[in-house]
Simulated assay, not measured.
Amino acid sequence: MMLRRDVDTSLLVLTVALTCIGVVMIYSSSAIMAEERFHDGFYFLKRQLVYTLVGFILMAAATYFKYQNWRKLAVPALLGSIFLLLLLFIPGVGVRVGGALRWLRIPGLTLQPAELVKLSMVLYLAHSLTRKKEKVRSLSKGYLPYMIVLGLLLAMLLKQPDLGSAMIIAGVALGMLIVAGVRWQYIGLTVLMSLPVLYFLVMQVDYRRRRILAFLNPWEDPFDTGFQIIQSLVAFGNGGIFGQGLGIGEQKLFYLPEAHTDFIFSVIGEELGLVGVLVVAALFLTMVLCGIRIALKCTDPFGRNLAFGLTLLLGLEAFVNLSVCMGLLPTKGLALPFISYGGTSLVVCLVSVGILLNISSSTGGQP
């Protein structure tokens, strides 16, 4: 399936570049570990290549699927993702890894419903905000219904537990509501009321409290709670300006936890150095600017809301992952879009780009 020629070529090139970087770095960061665990150094690479192929096929399909049609699918998609979240709690269906119940076991693969929830929530909000128009400024008819839906989703995510995805979804939802014209007073009051809840969720749960303390002073417990942050910072330090060289990094050798997923950016820092770090960060920043440009050029309110929501989702996830790896935010298990190992995340990101490309085609693509 060929991509349309009237799409934003800059966004397309950025997406291909980030995905290719991801494939290369997944192999570099996982080969030795995969050889020891599975006796196959290409174990993760082969699976990521399959996910990449599926993702690009779906992305190409999304460029031809008129974005207006997503309005009809918005509510069913949200309900479907909620159903998948409920399936997690059925014994034998949900897969618990590291104490978290975040994956569904499907014959031949595992699925992470939280990634689908992120996309479906953006679709739902874009559709509903467009339909309500000026009513979004009303507390009872506009704002509270969204908070009820958002609260339900966050409660289910926290039950897994998955605080990272919950905060991403909350951030994207509030961002879309602000852009749609919701009163700032409502947003501010919601944030203030959420602070005690957030404090309880963090400080009253042992492992989360320890992560916060480790973030503030990782050297106080360098072999336990501070281990991840310290090893990540060591990786960046080892990389210097130009890096140790692709495949030569040492921190991925059982020092850096989840080197091919949550902390793959740290591997980039060690092997490709400051130059590689700046290139990846610049690619994400440029992608966000492309998404904002698409949103601003779109004259259709639904397309504008959808483009902004998808851009915010991709940009916020990238920002949080990069910040965690560099020790600017507490450790949280979130994938780096397009680059981290993981099928559901990659496919959802590529489909999101496909939708953005279709929106861009309606405004004439890129000159």
Results as ranks from 00 to 15, higher is better:
residue 340 S to C: 01
residue 127 H to I: 12
residue 235 A to I: 08
residue 88 L to G: 09
residue 88 L to A: 12
residue 294 I to Q: 07
residue 238 N to C: 00
residue 50 V to S: 08
residue 112 Q to P: 10
residue 292 I to C: 10
residue 351 V to M: 11
residue 236 F to M: 04
residue 158 L to H: 14
residue 226 G to C: 01
residue 203 M to F: 12
residue 225 T to Q: 05
residue 33 M to G: 05
residue 247 G to W: 00
residue 248 I to L: 13
residue 179 V to A: 15
residue 352 S to A: 14
residue 95 V to K: 13
residue 112 Q to K: 04
residue 133 K to E: 14
residue 342 G to N: 00
residue 282 A to E: 00
residue 43 Y to W: 14
residue 229 I to R: 09
residue 68 Q to S: 07
residue 131 R to M: 15
residue 199 Y to P: 08
residue 179 V to P: 11
residue 141 K to F: 10
residue 227 F to R: 12
residue 168 I to D: 04
residue 331 T to F: 00
residue 214 A to E: 08
residue 65 F to M: 03
residue 155 A to M: 15
residue 55 G to H: 05
residue 160 Q to E: 15
residue 127 H to S: 14
residue 78 L to Q: 08
residue 129 L to R: 03
residue 157 L to Y: 11
residue 251 Q to E: 01
residue 61 A to L: 14
residue 17 A to N: 02
residue 367 P to R: 13
residue 91 P to E: 10
residue 191 V to C: 10
residue 16 V to M: 12
residue 316 L to N: 03
residue 228 Q to H: 15
residue 364 G to F: 11
residue 267 V to H: 06
residue 105 R to D: 03
residue 76 P to H: 04
residue 181 G to K: 07
residue 254 F to S: 10
residue 298 C to W: 03
residue 161 P to M: 13
residue 295 A to H: 06
residue 171 G to H: 04
residue 44 F to H: 05
residue 138 S to K: 02
residue 254 F to R: 11
residue 285 L to A: 07
residue 214 A to D: 06
residue 2 M to Q: 09
residue 235 A to P: 06
residue 121 M to H: 06
residue 249 G to T: 02
residue 317 E to W: 02
residue 198 L to E: 07
residue 310 L to I: 12
residue 90 I to E: 06
residue 283 L to M: 01
residue 274 L to G: 10
residue 75 V to G: 01
residue 362 S to N: 13
residue 225 T to P: 00
residue 291 G to P: 10
